[in-house]
Design a protein around this nucleic acid. Structure first.
Length: 426
RNA sequence: GGAGAGAUGGCCGAGUAGGCUGAAGGCGCUCGCCUGCUAAGCGAGUGUAGGGCGAAAGUUCUACCGAGGGUUCGAAUCCCUCUCUCUCCGCCA
């Protein structure tokens, strides 16, 4: 959410930004609504002022044993008017807030203005595609051949977009989670968090999943619980409505959680394999920083995520999302895309964003600067470090061999009981 | 699930026969003084959000004592509902 006063005095900047992002959002009502709201608020506050003054008079008169019944009768009228106006005002506040909630974040000046993913500039690439003298298979075939992935039975258990991992497959997923958590906690200085996997409406609103992205969420029937679509939600909301000491910043958190997404808008897309599931595992990096250092922190966070792929020796490229492809709350986003030889394409495995104060404003996450007493909003950042299921995809496709077996990346072997190879059991 | 206690400012903690209590006191923090350094001491200041006026510093008004309703001229204080925390009992991974 943007600052109301900022929007009020920069309405043209906002309109241009909305255009650059390719959003279809009409904010022409904003000014009138804002004005109406303020007028009514002023009227109401004047009446309340009067009530307060007269109430004091009543207290005085009673003390002096004077008759206050005339004033009291008059105030009865005023009070009922106040009550009516108090019932009336929230409509305007809510309407304005609704409008404000649907205005996306302002992209950083370094973000390229573009239409869609074709306009995303590549920032850098790392690693070489493995040389294969055979036709590489997509991971779902590799996994099913090795009997470590079973999509048919997963569909029986739950439905489409679910996976059943078996044996070395299940272990590989678990190994990756530990591998990633260990690097981020021991080497990159993040504090591990294990949060609830369900959160309430207030949390979903705090990070911006609600109200705009309601359709993407799974809700528990009869409860104010939503399954989290990413650890970003519970972890960012840890400090919701809090004022932090400046000393504690920056805060680095890393959390492993499963993520649950309806994938409502992607019917028929990526229907095969692990790529797009209703439930998947992710290790998420979250940062809370001072405003002036958030862009440096974004670079660091992105490199922390890249480091995982370097250790696993998986080729990838880093792209920067253009205005047309940028997420609603983000001011700047880097996507890390891994090379998948089995499918012959690059696939997003991590998305690292700086939200600046956009999430913090809505969630009320502030800090008190040393020396000053005015509170400021923190900047929030997050990025996948990494999506675990897609990392399995990348390993299977990049480390596959002609005989159908899959070499386990060296860095991961300590987490796989020393095994070097996943091969078919005879 | 049953019985009871509680929720106040960045933190701790006063405040119920409703009326200058935005809220005592303490801690913390900021500025100044003092001390050779450290520690201690002294003085002043220090909530959040929103509106009006002001170029700004600022000033003024309104709201906020877990949340939402109600009673009243007037509610942190009375009533109702909800949420959360704690203690005891029961049940359970």
């Amino acid at each position: 959410m943007l600052d109301l006063k900022f929007v009020r005095s920069n309405i043209d900047v906002i309109k241009e930004m909305i255009r650059n992002r390719g959003y279809d959002l009409d904010i022409s009502k904003f000014e009138a609504l804002d004005l109406q709201r303020r007028q009514r608020l002023t009227e109401l506050e004047e009446l309340r002022y009067r009530r307060n003054v007269v109430s004091e008079q009543v207290a005085d008169m009673k003390k002096k044993k004077e008759d206050a019944s005339g004033v009291i009768a008059e105030m009865k009228e005023v009070s009922s008017t106040i009550k009516e106006m108090e019932k009336d005002l929230p409509q305007f506040v809510e309407a304005l807030e609704q409008l404000l909630m649907f205005i996306p974040n302002i992209p950083h000046e370094s973000v390229v203005v573009g239409k869609d993913e074709k306009d995303n500039p590549v920032i850098r690439s790392w690693g070489d595609a493995p040389k294969m003298d055979f036709t590489p298979l997509p991971h779902w075939e590799i996994g099913e051949n090795l009997d470590i992935l079973d999509f048919t039975r997963a569909a029986k258990l739950a439905g489409t977009r679910f996976a059943l991992y078996k044996g070395q497959g299940a272990r590989l997923e678990r190994a990756l989670i530990n591998f990633m958590l260990d690097i981020h906690t021991k080497e990159h200085g993040y504090t591990e968090i294990l949060p609830p996997f369900m959160v309430n409406t207030a949390s979903m609103t705090g990070t911006g999943q609600l109200p705009k992205f309601k359709d993407e969420l799974f809700k528990i029937e009869g409860w104010d619980f939503y399954l989290i679509p990413t650890a970003e939600v519970p972890v960012t909301n840890i400090y919701r409505e809090e004022i932090l000491d400046e000393d504690v910043l920056p805060i680095y958190h890393v959390a492993y959680t499963p993520c649950f997404r309806s994938e409502a808008g992607s019917h028929g897309k990526d229907t095969r394999g692990l790529t797009r599931q209703h439930q998947f595992n992710k290790v998420e990096l979250v940062k809370f920083t001072r405003p002036e250092e958030s862009y440096t922190e974004l670079e660091n966070l992105t490199r922390n995520a890249e480091e995982i792929l370097k250790r696993l020796n998986i080729p990838y490229r880093l792209i920067s999302l253009c205005t047309g492809d940028l997420g609603f709350s983000a001011a700047k986003t880097y996507d890390i895309e891994v090379w998948l030889p089995g499918q012959g394409l690059y696939r997003e495995i991590s998305s690292c964003s700086n939200f600046c104060d956009f999430q913090a404003r809505r969630a009320g996450i502030r800090f008190r600067p040393k020396g000053g007493n005015k509170t400021e909003l923190v900047h929030t950042l997050n990025g996948s470090g990494l999506a675990v299921g897609r990392t399995v995809v990348a390993i299977l496709e990049n480390y596959q061999q002609a005989d159908g077996s899959v070499v386990i990346p060296e860095a991961l072997r300590p987490y796989m009981g020393g095994d070097k190879l996943i091969s078919k059991k005879e």
